[in-house]
Amino acid sequence: MTDWAVRVDDVSKKFRLYHERNQSLKSAILRGKTSEHEDFWALRNVSFDVAEGATHGLIGANGSGKSTLLKCLAKIYWPTSGDISYRGKMASLLEVGSGFHLELSGRENIYLNGSILGMSRKQIDSRFDEIVDFSGVEKFLDQPVKNYSSGMYVRLGFSIAINVDPDILVVDEVLSVGDEDFQRKSFDKFRDLKKAGKTVIIVTHAMSVVKDLCDTATWLRSGSVVQVGQADAVVDAYLDSVGT
């Protein structure tokens, strides 16, 4: 096996389930405490490596902790214990068009969204044409984004995100944006990323996507790892367990 690009080392994540959450001053003062809660472990001792240049799928039923893990990978949540290390620059794509300002034009939003995703102005300048090309909204580039159709909106958001050009890309189920044609383009883009030696971690419910795109996969159930390994084997095992 080659070197790892992402190492998830014994990661656990605890959430507090609030029976009563007092987000007001009155209740905090009256009761002398801010909340009553019990702990819920969304992730328990999760460990796996993702090899450099590999595309890795995270699979599991709803509520298995995939999204929590993805958010930990994206540095949005911080593990309660354990560590996640990266070799290279990481970017995440959990939602398309994060931080778009509706009154601003497509052009302005490319710069705004690009810098939120961690691109420098120079990088955006150099990739601007590619972003516009890929999104197919060049005619409407100077229109405010609020006049965009929902398809145009997500296509623009996706095009920016896919052009961030990180070493490691963490992606939520955003492959399902746009029409057939755009989806095919997105898949091709992911294959290009793979060819370029980028590491991709992807969460999805579409097992065909995992089999098609991923080299390796991790199967999660109730916050724990069930199986890590070659994508085909893990998907088959998962499908078997669901079928029975």
């Binding site: 009154e103 601003l104 302005e108 705004l112 939120i116 961690g118």
Partner: peptide, 16 residues
Amino acid sequence: ELLQNLTNREVRGKYR
């Protein structure tokens, strides 16, 4: 740079 872009968002977006 992000700070600058977010500032622009506030300034330009406000009186559109």
